[in-house]
Simulated scan of single mutants.
Amino acid sequence: MSEQERQGERIAKYLARAGVASRRDIERMIGEGRVRMNNVPVEHPATFVTAGDIVQVDGAVVGEQDRTRLWRYHKPDGLVTTHRDPEGRRTVFEAMPEGMPRVISVGRLDLNSEGLLLLTNDGALARRLELPSNGWIRRYRVRVFGVVDERRLAQLAEGSVFEGVRYGPIEAGLDSRKGDNAWLTVALREGKNREIRRVMSGLNLHVSRLIRTSYGPFQLGTLNRGELEEVPGKTLREQVSGLAPERRPGRKV
């Protein structure tokens, strides 16, 4: 047995890898007394989990960690990307098919946005894929109402400031126009909360539809609304470096 196996794994990392939540959220849950190990409340995120330990979150036992998995989901509008909604609105996770393991989202799409949402059972992977340092481009199709000024659209690539908030470079181009409605293609690398809607509002454009078509190398493709499809393990490991190889029956990894 290696030294790492004897010491175990920090509980925050263990639960993140099990898809419970991000490490930051798990640390908050520990502070709220929601995490127990061997029926004793966990008081510090540096607690180590070793073989045979029983970990519970909100009274439910967290099972053995599965291999890292990723799904593409075509989120319809009208769903919120959160596990619990204080307003009682239906969530993305309530829409998952029966038998789906516990997953968390890579980033979010707001209530009225739709399109590609990545889901994973590995909280550490989710956090990693959200980091702006990845340089992954997120592309959107955006329908707007108003007069589109293509010169101002092009200037967004230099960064912008609206209502005192500074936004990074956004690539935006006009695809088609019919009357006061237009379709744009928008691409960014770091998305602040409701960034596209707020930036478009700053250009006197009202967003009536927002569809994410890609997140880094992963595409919405032909997924129908509400449809879910797992990314093959081989593809995931080709696109995300450093992931452990898949376990195969009868083979020790």
Rank of each mutant, 00 (worst) to 15 (best):
G233A: 15
G123M: 01
E3G: 02
F218T: 06
G173L: 08
P245K: 04
R28N: 14
R251Q: 15
R209Y: 10
I26N: 05
S160K: 08
R209Q: 11
E238T: 05
E5R: 04
D58Y: 10
H74W: 01
S2P: 13
A18T: 00
S214I: 08
L188Y: 00
V35E: 03
E27Q: 09
P86F: 13
R84D: 14
G233M: 12
L125S: 11
G179W: 00
S2I: 04
E32P: 09
S113N: 08
I54P: 00
G173T: 15
T235L: 15
V147M: 09
R151L: 14
I211L: 15
N112G: 02
V80L: 11
L116E: 04
E27F: 04
M100W: 00
V161T: 12
V40C: 10
P41Q: 12
P45W: 00
H206W: 13
V144R: 07
Q239W: 15
L156R: 11
E150F: 01
G115C: 04
A12C: 03
M37K: 02
E229C: 09
N38K: 01
V240C: 13
Q65K: 11
P76R: 02
R127T: 12
L174T: 10
A16E: 04
E114D: 00
S208V: 14
P232T: 03
R143Y: 05
S214L: 03
G19E: 06
R34D: 07
K178H: 14
R84Y: 09
I137W: 15
G164L: 07
L109V: 00
Y14V: 05
T213Q: 10
G179Y: 12
L174G: 03
E158H: 14
G202L: 03
A16Q: 04
P217K: 07
L117M: 00
G168N: 14
P86A: 07
R139I: 01
G173M: 08
Y14I: 03
R90A: 10
I11T: 10
T50C: 05
M29V: 06
D122S: 07
W136C: 00
L125T: 01
K13H: 10
A187Q: 11
Q239S: 15
N112A: 12
Y73R: 04
R28C: 11
A16H: 01
G216R: 13
R34M: 11
E32N: 01
G164Y: 08
R90P: 06
K13Y: 06
S176V: 01
K75F: 13
R72A: 12
E163S: 02
P217N: 05
L223M: 02
S160P: 07
R212M: 02
P169G: 05
L153K: 05
D58C: 14
E230K: 02
V186W: 03
K13L: 03
P41T: 13
E98L: 13
I196Y: 07
P169H: 03
L228Y: 01
R141W: 08
S241D: 14
R139Q: 08
L79M: 10
G107M: 10
P217M: 09
D149P: 04
R102W: 02
N193M: 02
R237T: 11
R189G: 15
P245E: 14
N193I: 00
L131V: 02
G107F: 07
I211V: 09
D77P: 13
G226M: 03
V55R: 12
N181S: 05
R247T: 10
A18S: 12
A60T: 11
M100T: 01
V20Q: 05
G242D: 10
